[in-house]
Design a binder for these strands. Structure first.
Lengths: 148, 148
DNA sequence: CTGCGACCTCCAGTGCGCTGGAGGTCAAAT
DNA sequence: ATTTGACCTCCAGCGCACTGGAGGTCGCAG
């Protein structure tokens, strides 16, 4: 949601040793803050608290990162924390696949609706831009209405 | 941003008498709360405070509603209040068309980027859904990874 | 002429998603 | 041996966009 975040695990894959990466590196991979990662853990969005090394520092292994990539995808398509927590809770128990599926399908519908609305708005914005380009090119022909 | 809001002025057009509509009707037209409308006014997002009738109740005329439709479009595509305020301030002064245009163009780029990211995420979500449908259909074949 | 509902102002509170600061541990680098 | 920097926990604070409540006015219906 900040414009710079992209989720690409395959690319980064090789750089993840089997003993895992520290939180700073994980944050860097996802383009988010370390505090956000800890926050997600506190909020129960991970399947389990991230595993720790000798001096209880977090070490994220590939499976942890994969899960986080998934939750960020939900997050960045607008799913609220609370619902992601529900997803995590379901994912801890076997036999909840149908519920998880339904949650995802609902979310999918929501995202599509949002995207369609955005597309419509974008077209209107394009019209406004075109109108302004007119005005700016040979200035002072007509007045346009509506915000913008 | 609540899923139910749609902006359609043309449709509703006929029902707006020249003396304007009260805030409740305006809120209904846009599918937002009356408080939100007052809030936008307080925050300086309108060109001017909405004109009042005899007993200083707000009466929104067509031009007021058109502006609000525009600002809601910006809002619903994620433009923050502060930037919409800037747009409103510019729109009060003539000769600021170039700045308004630039603001809109920047916003357009931002919206497009967001939409492209969403589209990518959506595709991933679709894959997840497909995987879950498999599992749910003939249950217990394989485990999928990633949140969801 | 009394009630009712929609409206008014002013100011405080809420929900969400982080984000910051204090105070401390640990492992490697000088 | 000390310093540095990334990490830790705990708890408080922040920014944004509303949202709610108190206390009051207005105009019409009964």
């Amino acid at each position: 949601m900040d414009g710079m975040t992209e989720i690409l695990l395959p690319d980064v894959d090789a750089e993840i040793p089997p003993e895992g990466v520290p939180i700073g590196r994980a944050a860097e991979i996802f383009g988010i803050g370390v505090r956000t990662l800890r926050y997600y853990e506190d909020e129960g969005l991970l399947l389990d608290p991230a595993p720790r090394d000798s001096g209880h520092r977090r070490r994220y292994r590939r499976s942890d990162l994969t899960w986080i990539a998934g939750l960020l995808m939900l997050r960045q398509t607008g799913m609220p924390i609370a619902r992601i927590r529900v997803m995590a809770e379901l994912s801890r128990r076997a036999g909840t696949e149908a519920e998880r599926l339904e949650l995802l399908e609902r979310h999918r519908e929501h995202v599509i609706e949002e995207m369609e609305r955005t597309r419509r708005h974008l077209r209107a914005i394009d019209h406004k831009i075109a109108a302004y380009r007119e005005v700016v090119a040979h200035r002072g022909d007509h007045e346009d209405d509506g915000a913008g």
